[in-house]
Design a protein around this nucleic acid. Structure first.
Lengths: 157, 157
DNA sequence: TCTGAAAGTCACGAAGG
DNA sequence: CCTTCGTGACTTTCAGA
């Protein structure tokens, strides 16, 4: 066995973590480079990446884009509190269609959900808030982001 | 001129937005595919992508990785309030070295900053909170994420 | 799970309109 | 800003260990 038999394919081995580390740093890194960096042949890396994709450890790849330059300079966090505490908890589905909502977290604490949103302007935020309240029957508390010292840093693997 | 002359290279043109849309969907998409999808030759797309990278609209590429499978199943938001309101505002620099902190937002509202963190366990979170308080001389308020209905969705371009 | 080789695809710069 | 074209690099598969 490997380390501690990796609890039914749960924990990742060193080489796989090295691969993920490189792909987090550069999602377009070639298999050739990847192979050199982790000390494996091109085909071996190729197989491992495919396996990581199939396992779901590697969910995909995406570009990192500048919010300002694409015309969405305003980020905010919106906390949700259900108006009717007895209503069924289907808030995520009710909000899914609003593309301005980047992330939706179910949380412990005073509020039920935290939404991370990105919009073009204060006016667009006002409109989004109206749509959220209408779609989900919730009251909202909004925290506007002034600046982002850093964001989406890669975790240490 | 184009649309409204794009306010000094600020706004993006339709083809560039189409390219970003595709790269947000699949960060490893080949230039060949990209060209077909946006209706341009391979070289033209290549040039545009390079230009977008130089402009800073395209900041890079990254893999999307499953938090659970890499051994970091716990996400939380931590709000920061300075203990000494007169202290210099260098909190981001003081916290930068803590790799568990994925994002750091300066916000308007009751608190000064919101941190998004990812850790292995409640114990690791406790330890991180201690380090944050020590490093930045702040009091903290923590909201634990129970589940994530959706996260990091691509914005509508 | 690895390696090495073969075949097909792709990246990327040059030249030109 | 676009196209076409050519070369070298890369991806992907497969056989073998």
């Amino acid at each position: 066995m490997t380390d501690r038999n990796a609890a039914q394919s749960s924990e990742l081995e060193a080489t796989d973590r090295a691969i993920l580390r490189e792909l987090l740093r550069d999602g377009r890194c070639s298999f050739t480079d990847l192979g050199e960096r982790v000390g494996l042949s091109v085909s071996a890396v190729h197989q491992r990446v495919r396996r990581l994709e199939q396992r779901g450890a590697l969910r995909g790849y995406t570009a990192r884009v500048d919010g300002e330059q694409i015309g969405l300079p305003l980020t905010a966090f919106i906390s949700l509190t259900p108006i009717d505490p007895a209503a069924p908890d289907d808030y995520p589905q009710r909000l899914e269609h609003l593309s301005e909502i980047e992330s939706c977290f179910s949380v412990a604490g005073d509020e039920s959900y935290i939404l991370q949103v990105r919009v073009a302007s204060p006016l667009a935020l006002e409109d989004l808030l109206r749509q959220i309240r209408e779609s989900a029957k919730v009251s909202t508390r909004t925290t506007v982001v002034l600046s982002t010292p850093f964001e989406n840093r890669a975790p240490e693997l």
